[in-house]
C-alpha cells in the first residue's frame, strides 16, 4: 500500500491536469484550479513539516554529540529565534529587517561574489588551445566576454555586434535544440510517472528504478 497509494494519487493527478489542458470539458470543470488550491495548502504545510523535521534531525545530532554538533545547535537557535522574532514583529519589523539586510543579504551576496574569483581562476586553467574545438570555444568566450563589458566597444566599435551575433544565432540555435530535447525528455518522464513506470519521486521506494 505504501507504493500503490502514492502511485495512484500521482497517476490521477497527472491525468486530471492532462485532461484539463487538452479537453474543453476538463477546462469547464476547472479541475486544475482545485488541484492548485490543494497544492498551495500542501506547500504551506510542507514548510511547517520541514521546520519540524529539520529541528528533529539537528536535535538528535546535538543530543548524541555527533560530529559538528555545535553547528546543529547553532542552526536550531538561529532558525527558531529568527522565526519567533518574525512572528512577534512581522516581516518588516525593525530588528527582523535589520538582521535580514545586514546579515543574510550581505553574506549571500558575498558568497555569490566570490564566484568571480573562482571563474577567473577556472578560465585561466581551462581555456587552453589543446584541440580545435577548445580554441573555438575560447575565442567565442573572449568575444562574448568583451562584448558584454563596455571595454569591447571601446576597443572596436563593432565588437558588440559580433558578440550579439554569436548570442543571437549560434547560441540560440544550440539552445533551441537543447530545449526541445529537454521538453521531449520531460514529456517522456511525465508519461512514465503517470503510468507508474518511474518511481523516483516516491523517495526511498525503488528510487529511479522501473517496475519489471
Amino acid at each position: 500500500m505504501r507504493k500503490e497509494l502514492p502511485m495512484f494519487i500521482t497517476a490521477v493527478s497527472g491525468l486530471v491536469v492532462v485532461f484539463s489542458r487538452y479537453f474543453q470539458l476538463g477546462e469547464q470543470w476547472n479541475l486544475t484550479t482545485t488541484l492548485d488550491r490543494w497544492s498551495l495548502v500542501s506547500a504551506a504545510f510542507a514548510i511547517g513539516l520541514g521546520l519540524g523535521n529539520l529541528t528533529r534531525i539537528h536535535y538528535r545530532n546535538v543530543k548524541r554529540r555527533r560530529e559538528h554538533w555545535p553547528f546543529s545547535l547553532y542552526l536550531i537557535i538561529v532558525m527558531w529565534a529568527y522565526m519567533i522574532l518574525g512572528l512577534y514583529q512581522d516581516v518588516e519589523g525593525t530588528h527582523f529587517r535589520w538582521i535580514y539586510d545586514a546579515v543574510l543579504m550581505q553574506l549571500s551576496a558575498t558568497i555569490y561574489g566570490i564566484i568571480a574569483f573562482y571563474i577567473s581562476s577556472a578560465a585561466y586553467r581551462a581555456f587552453k588551445i589543446r584541440t580545435r574545438e577548445a580554441a573555438v570555444m575560447m575565442i567565442a568566450a573572449v568575444i562574448v566576454m568583451f562584448g558584454v563589458a563596455p571595454i569591447g566597444d571601446a576597443i572596436w566599435a563593432n565588437w558588440g555586434k559580433v558578440s550579439d551575433w554569436i548570442m543571437n544565432y549560434l547560441n540560440v540555435a544550440g539552445r533551441r535544440g537543447i530545449l526541445l530535447g529537454a521538453y521531449l525528455g520531460s514529456f517522456a518522464v511525465a508519461m512514465r510517472i503517470i503510468l507508474g513506470l518511474e518511481r523516483a519521486h516516491l523517495g526511498g521506494i525503488g528510487t529511479g528504478t522501473t517496475i519489471q
Binding site: 577567473s120 585561466y124 587552453k128 566576454m145 568583451f146 563589458a149 563596455p150 571601446a154
Partner: peptide
C-alpha cells in the same frame, strides 16, 4: 559596476593568453 566587468575581462583574457603561451 560595468567598469569592473571591463577590468575583469581584461585581466581574465591576459591570464588566458599567458596560460596559452606557456602551453604552446
Amino acid at each position: 559596476g560595468t567598469d569592473t566587468s571591463s577590468m575583469a575581462a581584461i585581466l581574465v583574457t591576459l591570464f588566458i593568453i599567458l596560460g596559452n603561451i606557456g602551453y604552446v
